[in-house]
């Protein structure tokens, strides 16, 4: 049915080398948003630093909190200590832990914001 026609002649497609833009002075922020390999390297560095910070905060909190039940199991008489009318353990578990948690959280938040600020600085300078 169809009449065989000649396929169109082959044309070589190339880019004009002279007009190609060299990417040397691209801001890194662009690399980040455009998901280039270079951007990935920067983000991976930030993630590693943040993860190290998070893991160390969690580890310290786990060791401090986790030590208390263990200490109580080993030395049950700790439960009977008291300051004035109040049991020491109450002051530790019922009161002191909460400000301690807030202090830890503030430390983490500041450190994490500092990491991000450094990251932003590096990106803005390059």
């Amino acid at each position: 049915m169809t009449t065989p026609t000649q396929p169109p002649a082959r044309v070589r497609v190339t880019s004009s080398r002279r007009r190609a833009i060299r990417h040397l002075d691209r801001p890194v922020a662009e690399e980040l948003t455009e998901q280039t390999r270079l951007g990935d390297v920067y983000v991976a560095g930030l993630m590693r630093a943040q993860l190290r910070l998070s893991a160390s905060v969690l580890l310290v909190a786990a060791l401090l909190l986790g030590a208390v039940p263990l200490a109580l199991a080993i030395w049950p008489e700790l439960r009977l200590l008291r300051i004035g009318p109040l049991p020491v353990l109450w002051l530790v578990l019922g009161v002191a832990v909460y400000p301690a948690a807030v202090i830890g959280a503030r430390y983490y938040t500041r450190a994490s914001e500092n990491l991000e600020a450094t990251f932003v600085d590096v990106i803005d300078k390059t």
Binding site: W90, L93, G104
Partner: peptide, 24 residues
């Protein structure tokens, strides 16, 4: 008894873990 103070501590510390791992 006072052993149960671990419950409110846990309810609160949950937010510390949340902060450090996933908040932002």
């Amino acid at each position: 008894g006072i052993d149960m103070l671990w419950f409110p501590i846990g309810y609160t510390m949950g937010y510390l873990v949340l902060l450090v791992l996933i908040a932002a």
